[in-house]
Design a protein around this nucleic acid. Structure first.
Length: 510
DNA sequence: GTCCTATGTTCAGAAATATG
DNA sequence: CATATTTCTGAACATAGGAC
C-alpha cells in the first residue's frame, strides 16, 4: 500500500507520526521532494544496520528545525516557563538555575515548535532539505568569507526579517551560514541554501546528464531552484551573492560530478561488475596476465572501500575524498563496512560514486545526510562501527556498572583520567562524556550522540538565562555546569564542565 | 587516583589498479 | 604510457577501560 504525505514536510510529518523512514522512498513532485512510504517494500538489505543509521539520521532532521528555534531565541524574553524557576544570583560564585522540566528538554521542545506555524513561517523544513540536497558534498569553499556581510548589506529590506537574527546571539562568525561545508551554526539554513541553490543549479543544469541517477540529480536541482525562488529573494540579492562569492573564491569548483578532472564515466558496483564492458574486461585480463604471478594478490575484501586489517582482523572502511583518506571505522561485518563506505561515498562524491550495493538502498539516507558536513557524515558512520565503544558500556567513554556509570576521559586539560561524574544511566554518562569531549576537541569530537543535541541544550540554556542582566548571564555561563541537573556546583569532586566552555566549543571547535 | 594494557586512530607510503 | 585513484600495510601514537 502506498502512503504519500502531501507537501514538503513529508519526511517530518512521517517522523512526527512515529513512522519508520527506512521503508520510505524519495519522490519528486511539483511540491518538492517528498517521501513515499510503501509497506512491504524492503529498501535495505541489512535492516539492523540501517535502523541504527536511520535513528541517527532522524536526529539530523531536527537540524532543520533549529532554524525555527533560533527565531524563537531572538524573541524578547518573556515570562515563559523557561524563565520561571530561575533563582537570583546567590552569594557564592555560582548562579543557581533550576532546569526546565524534563518534558521541555531536547526534542520535546522542538516538537512543539514544529507544530507551531507562527514560529518560522517562511519555509518548511523539507524545503531546506530539498535545497541542501541539491549539492554534492563536500563543498570546497573555505570557512572564512565576507560573503554574508556583503549579502546582508546588499539586501536590507528583504533580509530584514532574518538579518535581525543574523548571526544569532552566540554565533560570532556570520560566514558559516553560507557554507554547507561548515554548517556549524544553529541557524544555517535559508540564506545559505538559497544562495547555494542559485550558484550551483545552473552548473548542474549545464551538466550533461547521462544516467537515471544524474537525471534524479537534475530533477532535484530544479526542485531546489523552485524552492529558492519561493523564498522571495530578489534578483539583486542573487547577483550580489554570486558576484561576491566568485570574487572571493575564483578557484572553487562546482561539486556536481565531473566538472573537474576526468570525464564522467559510469562505474559499476561490484554487484554488477560482471556485466562491465567487454573491452574493459579484456584490457584488465590482459593487464593481469602481464603481471608476474606473485603480484596477483587477491583483495582482502570483495567490496570497494573495504579492507581487512591484517593485525586487528577487522573490516575497515575508508573513503578517499579530495585526496584525503576518511577513516570510517572498523566493522566486524564486511557488508556493514561496505555499506558504510557506500553512504559516505554517495554523500561526499555524489551519485556518480561507485558503490557496492544498489543506489536505491540509500536514497532515504542520502536525502537526509546530504545537508550534513563531511565531518558529520563520517561521525554518523563511525558511531555505527563495531569498534566505537569497546567496553562494558555500549557508549564510548563510559565505564562502570548498572546504576553507577562513570564518564571519563583519559587525558583532559592536563589531567589523567579526568572523571566527569557518576550517573544512573549509561546514556547520561555518555552525554557527559560527549560534552567533555566537545570542549576538548570541538566539532571534530567523536561523540556518542549527535552534536545537535548539545546545541539544543545550549540553546535551552541560553533561553533560560536570557531573563538575567548581561553581567549575570556571563556569570551564569562561567559558573554553571552542564547538564544543569547533573553536578551540583557545591560538589566539586569531579571535573566540572561549564556552560561557557561548551558554548565556545560548539562555536569555534574544529 | 594511578598504572597498565589492549586496541583504536591516524598517517604515510608502497603497491595495485583504473583511466585517458 | 602517464597519471590518477584506490587499496593495503605497518608504525607511531592516543586513549579507553579495567585493575588495584
Amino acid at each position: 500500500m502506498d502512503r504519500s504525505v502531501e507537501g514538503n514536510d513529508a519526511g517530518l510529518a512521517l517522523m512526527a507520526e512515529g513512522e519508520d523512514l527506512s521503508s520510505c522512498s524519495a519522490r519528486n513532485d511539483d511540491d518538492g521532494l517528498g517521501l513515499v512510504k510503501e509497506e512491504g517494500v524492503a529498501g535495505v538489505v541489512d535492516e539492523a544496520f540501517d535502523e541504527a543509521l536511520l535513528a541517527a539520521l532522524k536526529q539530523d532532521l531536527m537540524k532543520a528545525v533549529d532554524v525555527r528555534a533560533t527565531n524563537l531565541l531572538r524573541q524578547p524574553p518573556s515570562s515563559s516557563s523557561f524563565l520561571e524557576g530561575i533563582d537570583e544570583v546567590d552569594n557564592s560564585d555560582s548562579v543557581l538555575l533550576t532546569p526546565p522540566p524534563k518534558d521541555k528538554l531536547g526534542t520535546a521542545m522542538f516538537d512543539d515548535l514544529m507544530t507551531d506555524p507562527t514560529v518560522f513561517p517562511l519555509e518548511s523544513p523539507n524545503s531546506v532539505l530539498s535545497a541542501r540536497s541539491t549539492f554534492q558534498q563536500p563543498f570546497p569553499l573555505p570557512r572564512s568569507t565576507s560573503v554574508t556581510t556583503k549579502l546582508c548589506a546588499s539586501t536590507p529590506t528583504v533580509m530584514h526579517e532574518t538579518a535581525t537574527a543574523w548571526p544569532p546571539p552566540y554565533c560570532p562568525e556570520p560566514s558559516v551560514f553560507l557554507v554547507p561545508q561548515s554548517t556549524r551554526s544553529y541557524a544555517q539554513g535559508s540564506v545559505g541554501d538559497v544562495m547555494m541553490t542559485r550558484l550551483f543549479c545552473p552548473m548542474a543544469q549545464q551538466h550533461q546528464y547521462q544516467s537515471p541517477e544524474d537525471e534524479y540529480l537534475s530533477q532535484q536541482a530544479q526542485v531546489a531552484l523552485s524552492a529558492a525562488a519561493a523564498q522571495g529573494f530578489p534578483e539583486p540579492f542573487f547577483e550580489a551573492a554570486e558576484a561576491s562569492c566568485r570574487e572571493d573564491f575564483p578557484e572553487h569548483q562546482c561539486s556536481v560530478p565531473h566538472v573537474k578532472g576526468r570525464k564522467p564515466t559510469r562505474r559499476r558496483s561490484s554487484k554488477t561488475a560482471s556485466s562491465s564492458s567487454a573491452t574493459t574486461e579484456k584490457k584488465n585480463v590482459k593487464r593481469k596476465a602481464q603481471l608476474p604471478k606473485k603480484e596477483q594478490k587477491p583483495r582482502t575484501s570483495k567490496y570497494r572501500g573495504v579492507s581487512r586489517h591484517r593485525l586487528t582482523k577487522r573490516w575497515e572502511a575508508s573513503c578517499w575524498v579530495h585526496k584525503k583518506q576518511l577513516y570510517l571505522g572498523g566493522f566486524d561485518d564486511e557488508e556493514r563496512a561496505a555499506r558504510a563506505y557506500d553512504v559516505v561515498a554517495l554523500v561526499c562524491k555524489g551519485f556518480s560514486a561507485e558503490i557496492n550495493f544498489e543506489l536505491e538502498d540509500y536514497l532515504t539516507h542520502i536525502q537526509i545526510l546530504r545537508h550534513c558536513t563531511q565531518e558529520e557524515v563520517v561521525a554518523h558512520i563511525r558511531r555505527q562501527s563495531s569498534a566505537f565503544a569497546r567496553g562494558r558500556s555500549r557508549y564510548r567513554g563510559v565505564s562502570g556498572t548498572e546504576g553507577r556509570w562513570e564518564a571519563r576521559i583519559g587525558k583532559y586539560d592536563g589531567k589523567k583520567n579526568a572523571t566527569f561524574g557518576f550517573f544512573e544511566t549509561e546514556e547520561d554518562a555518555a552525554r557527559q562524556y560527549d560534552r567533555a569531549l566537545l570542549i576538548q576537541k570541538g566539532r571534530s569530537a567523536k561523540t556518542n550522540f549527535n552534536v545537535f543535541f548539545y546545541q539544543t541544550e545550549m540553546m535551552e540554556y541560553e533561553k533560560m538565562i536570557s531573563g538575567l542582566d548581561p553581567e549575570q548571564q556571563d556569570r551564569a555561563r562561567l559558573t554553571t555546569t552542564l547538564p544543569l541537573d547533573a553536578v551540583p556546583p557545591c560538589q566539586r569532586k569531579f571535573t566540572l564542565l561549564y556552560a561557557e566552555h561548551l558554548k565556545r566549543a560548539l562555536e569555534f571547535g574544529q
